[in-house]
Every structure is written in structure tokens, then in C-alpha cells.
Nucleic acid binder design. Sequence first.
RNA 1: GCGCCCGUAGCUCAGUUGGAUAGAGCAACGGACUUCUAAUCCGUAGGUCGUAGGUUCGAAUCCUACCGGGCGUACCA
Length: 581
Amino acid sequence: MKGFVMKTEEFGLQIKSVIAETLVETYGIRPDIPDPVVPPENIDAEYALPCFTFAKALRQAPAKIAATIVTGMSPKKWFDTVFASGPYINFKIKDSILFDTVISELLSRKVKFGHIHQSEPELILVEYSSPNTNKPLHLGHVRNNVLGIAVINLLQAVGHKCIPATILNDRGIHICKAMVAYKRFAEGKTPNDMKIKGDQFVGNLYVLFEKNAPKNPELMDEARQMLRDWEMGDMETRELWHKLTHWVQQGFDETYARLGSHFQLVQRESDTYLPGKQIVSEGLQKNVFYLKDDGSVWIDLSDYGLDEKAVLRKDGTSLYITQDLGVAVERFNDLQIDRAIYVVGSEQIYHFKALFHIIEKLGYTWADKCDHLSYGMVYLPEGKMKSREGKVIDADNLIDKMKEMSREIMEHSHFQIEQSERDSIAEAIGLSAIKYYILRFNPQKDIHFDPEKSLSFEGATGAYIQYCHARICSLLQKANWTESKTWNPALLISKEEKSIIRALLQYPEALKKSEDDLNPSRIAAHLWEVARCFNAFYTCHRILDCGDELLSQSRLAMAAAVAFCLKSGLQILGIKPVEKM
RNA sequence: GCGCCCGUAGCUCAGUUGGAUAGAGCAACGGACUUCUAAUCCGUAGGUCGUAGGUUCGAAUCCUACCGGGCGUACCA
């Protein structure tokens, strides 16, 4: 029954080699063969090879070449038909072989379908999240975290090793403002007393400060004094600082746990702002930097089309870029990483351009191994989020809200779920909606987020894909399905089944593309495609009790393959697949 | 001013190393539930791809100019 099995990736490779062979035999030339592409829907074929690139060498129209190649090609046993259509050569693979290959590979590789093994994996540090410790995480951070998680999963899926890293920006005027507000207004209360999370507690203080500061200028003076005291290591100030930052971090930990953010390396600005100074003095010695009369240190980046950039203040204190410089050098030296990816918003494009050029000028060979994965801003209907004014979408509130909406739908669902399971499922579906919504976008694009309209459980959403996955899990469970059950790919003959198989076949390519340009939206889109194909199939064909046990088993095998693919993709996106909803 | 990003259906977005008839979702309208989970499916309608030039066999995609929006251009982060 299962005769000729070939790994899915080999179809493309085989096509290229057949074309190469034919070109040698027919024309006596050996040009580069482009990768096969996916034909449009009206063409019944899995692969198409465009012949434009041969036109120049052969001095013939692409369509003529395509026709000639088809005529001269020796048939392969897995071809059904090969036909030229204009400048394209279309390859239709024998259904039985195609179906067998795709389903067998999914059933054996499961969620590793499409993953790649690297013989020499890179060690890649991915820095993401890196929040200020004076307020709760908001929607902007959610985008950052969700993207960071997905990128790490993506890199690992294609065989690299990652160090998830973050820097807590726990030092500076922002936290001092909250500290002043605490002394003035908090009356010694704690987050526990107020029954709120530590980050929200401190965030409220920060907003309180900003509200009162315009009318009370002495508040700002106090905050500045607080910063000086902190730098001097004043005990009382440090204790207060420690107390507040600790509360914030406890709050973050809860939110991170919900979002699924994990960090192998957590650095604090309060620890890392010093090493950069060492780099600055080295740079001065190498004459890469120069000293101005007032004592500040600069670098001229005009040969890169940038301006002069300060790397040390006149009072000798570090700047943001000083710290990043020090941290980067430490990471490459101490951790032996091959690459570093910074997941940071697009407003810092200039900063990272400057940073990487400075590293290059300092002569570090790994300067080109640093990447800034920038992502667009998140806007609300009323404009940009402003944490000073408390005008933000709070991460915890957002998750809670989506969870509630999800629970609400569950109440009215036909499918009954045990009371005890509802909470975790509602949480998972709520998070799916948020994460999928964010990851559907190209990271480069700004997101205009309307809380009333943006998050939905219908159409191209996380819930849609989860729903498809849950349906299949339910089927498999009802049938007591196991991989060892006998099935026959030749029985899967409907056009809906064919669409499913083609979508599955293209998944590894979508994964690869996603990783190539660090763009998880490609996977997100492809999962939608897979789920859509399955849902369409599901409504017009029976799977269980369809009157033919072998057909039933064959459809179950295909359904299981779909489930593995969806599960794989969801996991890469950082979305927890559910088995019921 | 200068630099970078963006402009595709009413709305939100795919498609951009030039390639087959520019695709989805939402909203609108018309259909399918005594359900293998309707958080689903099927159908209809909706487009001078910001504008104008250019490059060529071919442009949403590349180049130039302009219009509109955003972000930068800190001894902030």
C-alpha cells in the first residue's frame, strides 16, 4: 500500500534536476535553475518552473523553451502530468504519491514537520521586551514580546540555538519619579494592601507624579535629587529603589508567564551601564572616538550618512548607546554568540544603525552579525499611547478582557466543556486572539488598534485556527485514532482533500521564508490557509462513519496530519494549541 | 530641512529578489445547523494597486518627481 515514499522537499529538488538534465540533452547548456514556484489556483499542478531566465542564453521566447523542455523530458514515476503553460512548466504529481508523502511525513515528523537540522547551528542571542521598570507592560510591549517569542521559536525550528535575553531598564529618572510619588502619596502602602500587582502599583505612582508635577515643580527637583542620590549609592534611596523595582519585577513575572516570555539571560541597566565606559576609553586610544573640550566623547559617523554621535556625557556618565556598546561586546566575548538580534521598535532604527556602525569602526569582526528587528508602532484610535497620561492598553487588562469574551462564547457553545477546564481554555483562546492578531501583520507595519473592532474570534484569527485544531483532536479521540491504523492515500480523491494536501505541502516553504526575513506573519497566513482548507473539507465530507472503514481511517490520517501542522505552526507563533474549545 | 518607513476593495491586511486573471478577513447582501464542535461553511457584490512620468517582452513590485501619513534626526530611552 505504501510504496514509493519521498520526502516532501525532494519534489522541488527533483524537478530542478530533471530540468537541468533536459536542458543539457536538448540544448547542451547547464544554466542555474530557479526554484519551482506554486502555480495559481486555476492550474492543476503542485509546482511550476518559470523559464524566463533561460531565454537570454537560448535566444528563444520563454514559452517556446517551456514547450521544448516538456517534449524532451523523460518521464519520472512520480509525475502525473507535466505540461507547459505559457512560459511555465507545470508539474502535477501523482495523487497517491503526493498524498502518501505528505501525510506519512507529517505523521512521522509530527510537530517537527518542516523543521531543519543544521549541521553547524548558530548560537543567536535574541534580546526582546527590555521594559522600563516604572509601569506595567502595555500593548506595545505585548507586540515586542509576542514577536520576540515567535522569532526565537522560528530560529530554533530551523535548527539554530537561541539565548532569549532582556535588559530591565531599572535605572533613571522614570523610576525616581515613581519613588518620589511613593514617598509623597503612598502612605507606606504596598501592592498587597491595595490588592493590585506590583507593576500596576508603581505605574499608578508614576502617573500620579506626572499629574502633579506641572503644578508642583519641586517634585521634579526631588526626582532629580533622587537620581543623584541613587548614583551616589545613598542607602535609603537604594532601599526604596530596590523595593519598588522588586514589586515591578514581580508584576512583570506574572505577565511574562501568561505571555509565555522566558529569558535565559536577564540583565539590569543598573549593572550594565558601566562596562561601556571601558569601551569608550579603548575607542579613544584607537582614535575612533574623540574628546571635546567639555569632556564629552564623540564619534563622527558622517561617512555612513549619519551625524556625530555622543558616546559619553561631559560629566563622564553613560548614555544609552554607551551601555549597549558595552553589553554587545560582553555578549560576543563571553557568551561566544554568532549573532545578536535586537527586537526593538522602529523609533530606534537610527540608534541601532549608529550602534552597529560604531562597533564596526571599533574593529569588531562581528559588527555585521548584529541585527535590529524593528517593528512598527501600535496606535490607538485616539493616537499614540502615552504612558505618562495613563493612556495605554494595559497588557493584563487586555488579556483578561479577551479571556472573558472567550469564556462568554464558550457558555453558548454547542460543545460542552468541563467547568474545571474552562478557565485555562479561555485564557489560551484569549491569548491566541491577541498573539495571532499581532503576528498577522508584517512586523514593519504600524498597527492601528481599535479595542472594539480589532480582536475577533471570527475569520483569520487565532481562535479560527484553534477551532480547526480542536475539531480534529475531537475526531481523533472519538475514533481512538493511532498512527498505526491502516490507511490508503488512493481513497482521498475529492478536490477539498487535494487543497488540504497542497496547503500542507507548502508549509515547510512558508516556515523557511518566515525565518529568512524574520517575519512570522508568513506562517500565520499559511496556518490560516491550512485551517481554511480543512474546514471547507469538513463541512462537505464525513470522516467518521462515512460508510467505508478504510476511507474513514484515511481521512483520519489526513486530519491528524493537519492537526500536527497546525500545532507546529501555533507553537512556533508562541500560541498554545488547545484540544477542546 | 535631511534620513528611514508606509500608501492595494468601505475597513483591516496579504501579495514587493519584476512574471500566469491583484488575493483574504471584516462589514453588506443571499443561503446551509434535530452538528463527526455553526468560534464553521457556500454564494453575491466590491479595485484607475496615492498621482504623474520612466526603465522593458512584462511593473502593485525597480527608478525619478510630486501628494498624503508616520518615525527619527538628544550629552533621552
